[in-house]
Design a protein around this nucleic acid. Structure first.
Lengths: 219, 219
DNA sequence: GAAAAAATACCGCCTGGGCGGTATTTTTAG
DNA sequence: CTAAAAATACCGCCCAGGCGGTATTTTTTC
């Protein structure tokens, strides 16, 4: 059996190089390339081949989820594993919906990542322990705590995501309205729905939640 | 000459392991341990010895800066290198003031980190290219852009940091005031000073900046 | 011990955000 | 094709937050 050809995509050279060495030390894996953003992944796959791509969610130019869509389209045979610091459910679901084959957190042990690569390359899906636990988060008594439960949160509307992102950019309702060509009143409604869904009572709360859940970009 | 004994502290096993392998592959370096938070660094140094400690800024239990103070006190001979994703000046200055010996960003090349370890272990200070560039950010014409320049930003007061953190926790001025046993008016003044220093015009702006600069915790 | 920086505090103004409700149109899913 | 979900939009209320000043006390630094 030939080795699994692995492509690593991470915008931090130090992390990418280290990871490469770590994975390269596994006898069944061969690191065929290291790139630093989504576009480079596509470029690489134009010229060379890979069985599995290890994707960092946080990448400039083209992030993990955006890339997934294109990969599905152009290179459906290539398997993908999302690697992230973030542990939120929204995040994971977003990736799964985008068609990722595996999901591993950076806080996982190396053995888990190795297993993920092997499982995924064999055509199956792999989701780590912690990942599964996160997804399984029980829809516990939200009326008692007053907090919206994870299940509900995950269902932010496209428009709502746009709105929360613009709010995070510190724009006023009127500005957001102008940019989206809708009425400020509508923006207000969306903001209110968001606050209700998420369970906060101010724009600051929204932004924090957005950051934490990867809905809003870090930079 | 004996090898440089390196201790790695990072809360992400995957990253730490990889880094360990990468650094261990350098002939002049020997990785003597891997720990996942500040407290463990201290524990480790109680029993074993190390020449250089590689610290991740973001660590639970005891973060990089907190740890630096204790290290200076208990193990002044141990050299320290701060490793971070973040590229902001505030951050770097905070570490330098806390007495760090070197500063390298995760977006750096591995050669830079290796060099840092060698330079630092020889008793000198090491600050990477990008780091220096960040610090050197020219005090350019802030009156024209209207933006407060980096130099000014760096000097957030202790109290101001407390305030910005509480603002990020989505508390109202009155709540913050109550918690710090001061008048809401004072909170207001601090908030205003913060906004002026940072160059934003709302709480959302403050929070974003705080997150970006590590003044406000992610979780 | 004097000068500088930080922390404290107040007055007043006004606007945008948060919150109560309601309702129509468009899109999506079954 | 129809019911549900999403997106659109408005009325009105109220107050906390943002902004203009100013000023005193405490702490730090040199």
């Amino acid at each position: 059996m030939s080795k699994i050809r692995l492509l690593i995509a991470d915008d931090h050279p130090l992390v990418a190089d280290s990871l490469s060495l770590l994975m390269g030390s596994v006898s069944t894996i061969e690191v065929v390339g290291i790139v630093r953003n989504g576009v480079q992944v596509l470029d690489f796959l134009e010229k060379y081949e890979a069985d599995v791509v290890l994707l960092d969610y946080h990448m400039p130019v083209m992030n993990g989820v955006e890339l997934l869509a294109r990969l599905r389209e152009k290179h459906p045979r290539v398997k993908t594993i999302m690697l992230t610091m973030n542990e939120e459910a929204t995040f994971i679901k977003e990736s799964i919906q985008a068609g990722v084959d595996g999901f591993v957190m950076k806080s996982a042990e190396k053995t888990e990542l190795i297993k993920a690569i092997q499982v995924v390359s064999s055509g199956k899906k792999f989701f780590g322990e912690k990942v599964v636990r996160k997804l399984a988060e029980v829809p516990d008594d939200s009326s008692a705590t007053g907090r919206t439960r994870v299940q509900d949160i995950q269902s932010l509307t496209k428009r709502e995501i746009e709105i929360i992102r613009l709010i995070a950019e510190d724009l006023e309702s009127t500005e957001i309205a102008a940019r989206l060509n809708i009425s400020p009143a509508t923006v207000d409604t969306h903001r209110r729905n968001l606050m209700k869904k998420i369970g906060v009572s101010s724009a600051v709360g929204l932004v924090r939640w957005g950051l934490k859940n990867g809905v809003v970009g870090e930079t």
